[in-house]
Amino acid sequence: MWIFTTLLILIPQALAGDVPVKLLSEDITIEEVISHSVSNAQADIKGKGDAMQLTYSVQEPLTVFVAFRKKDGAFSVFNTIQTILPAGIKQEATIDLTISPQWSIGENSFRLFFFSDSKQGAIFHDIEFIDATTGKTLSTAAKHLTMIQPYSPASYHRLPGLRVLGIPMVPVIGIAMLLAVLLLLILKKKHLLFPFIIIVALACHARFSLDALYYSWIHTNEWLRNNTYATAGSLPAIAKDLLAEDASSAYLCHTGTTYAKKLLQYHAFPVLITGGTPSHIVVHRSIDWSYNDSVLRCDGQEFSANLLETYNDGSALYQAQK
């Protein structure tokens, strides 16, 4: 019976949204997409509803990021929705907003990023929010409850915690537990006090254990099949190849934080990741590089180089010509 009920709750969810949506991947940076697009724009908008209906005209498919803004204007990459609007005149598309754990039943504040491969801009005729039905809200709550927390190099420092309909679950469950404890004390049911606290704590721990199992499965599977590992991508595999190549030093062509350089440096050491005249060049998630006629250009540097290997995350290893 409960399986049937679950299916009923989830079916409307599966049909919702005209355009396919997904959460922004941690290995995509907005800067990267901006650099690859011919034109881009952004707009701030507020609205209440589970879906955003856009009426627009555009000559080329339009990439859209929908970021949920907090009170201070900041937004989390992990909670940002990514979609592509098909080209056409006076097209209508509905973006399902509930895929993001940041979505709440009240008014939400968004920053929309638009990217296009055409110099012709897009025209938006109308933007409308569709009110959430009770069924949709319930199914969204169930979906948020089973969502996996994002895993990134920052995970060892702080975990964001589970959000349901934009509400953080830790204080909700925690305060409810404190109130229940007070009630037990008032009702003089002290024999239930410790069992109650312990079972709630264990249940919450067990919920995260599901995430831990998922991480184990997804990371191991990714590494065995693809030789990539979450944000690290192919860098550990590239480092292994640098060592096998007896590289003397390597240049990392990359756009982003220092994480990639530090990770490659650790795995490749004693090969040093430096500038100057490297024996090898690693291209990994860079927004500023090109390779033509055996000349690799990156961040204003130029190297004569031969391609040695390409990797499943789009990275490449080159050997510098002397």
Partner: peptide
């Protein structure tokens, strides 16, 4: 926020507060 809102500890600190209160 770190102890009572985000997810690093789950509801650990609430449980500890409950136990200490009890």
């Amino acid at each position: 926020k770190a102890l009572f809102v985000t997810g690093s500890f789950g509801i650990y600190w609430y449980a500890l507060l409950s136990i200490l209160t009890g």
